[in-house]
Amino acid sequence: MSIEVISKAIGDESRRKIIELLKDGELPASAIFDQFDYAAPTISRHLSVLKEAGIVSTRRNGVFIYYALEVKTLANLADWLSPLLPGSIPAKLNKERVVRVAKQKPENPFDKFQSEF
């Protein structure tokens, strides 16, 4: 999935909460529904958005649907973000950085004398 699709999917607070719930492993949909005060169709829609973005996957066991994080998708997001974060710039790039010093204007000896004309 593209970074744009992933970022739109995680832009909602409820979807981020679902991701946090799944960080320790897969959960049945009913366990996710229990964590929210919203109606089940609302949470189902959030889960669908996450699934369409490739952030979660599903596994059916009888009548139960289990949701789990797709680590590969989150790793792609982390790979895209890591160069943008402070302290994560590779040493090679740090060495190649060019520091530009502002050119100083040469001092004019006549600037000391202010003309009143």
Rank of each mutant, 00 (worst) to 15 (best):
M1Y: 07
M1A: 13
I3M: 08
I3N: 07
I3A: 11
E4M: 04
V5L: 13
V5R: 12
V5S: 11
K8M: 07
I10R: 01
E13W: 05
E13D: 11
S14C: 00
R16P: 01
K17W: 03
I18K: 00
I19G: 00
L22P: 02
L22Q: 04
D24T: 11
E26H: 11
E26A: 12
L27N: 08
L27W: 06
A29C: 13
I32L: 01
F33V: 05
D34S: 12
F36R: 04
D37T: 04
D37Y: 00
Y38L: 10
A40N: 07
A40Y: 00
P41N: 09
P41R: 09
T42K: 08
T42Y: 09
I43F: 05
I43C: 06
R45H: 13
L47F: 06
L47I: 09
S48E: 10
L50S: 01
L50R: 00
L50E: 00
K51I: 01
K51D: 04
K51Y: 04
E52P: 01
E52F: 06
A53N: 01
A53G: 03
G54H: 02
G54N: 01
I55S: 03
I55E: 02
V56P: 02
V56W: 03
T58Y: 02
T58L: 04
G62L: 05
G62I: 08
F64W: 09
I65S: 04
Y66N: 11
Y67T: 11
L69I: 05
E70H: 07
V71T: 09
K72D: 06
K72Q: 05
T73Y: 05
L74R: 04
A78C: 07
A78P: 02
W80A: 14
W80H: 14
S82M: 13
L84H: 12
L84A: 11
L85T: 10
P86S: 10
P86I: 10
G87Q: 06
G87A: 06
I89E: 15
I89W: 06
I89H: 08
P90H: 13
K92L: 08
L93V: 08
K95A: 09
R97L: 14
R97T: 14
R97K: 15
V98W: 12
V101A: 04
A102I: 14
A102P: 05
A102M: 15
A102G: 12
A102E: 15
Q104T: 11
K105F: 07
P106Q: 13
P106K: 14
N108C: 07
F110Y: 13
D111P: 02
D111C: 03
F113N: 10
F113P: 01
S115K: 12
F117T: 04
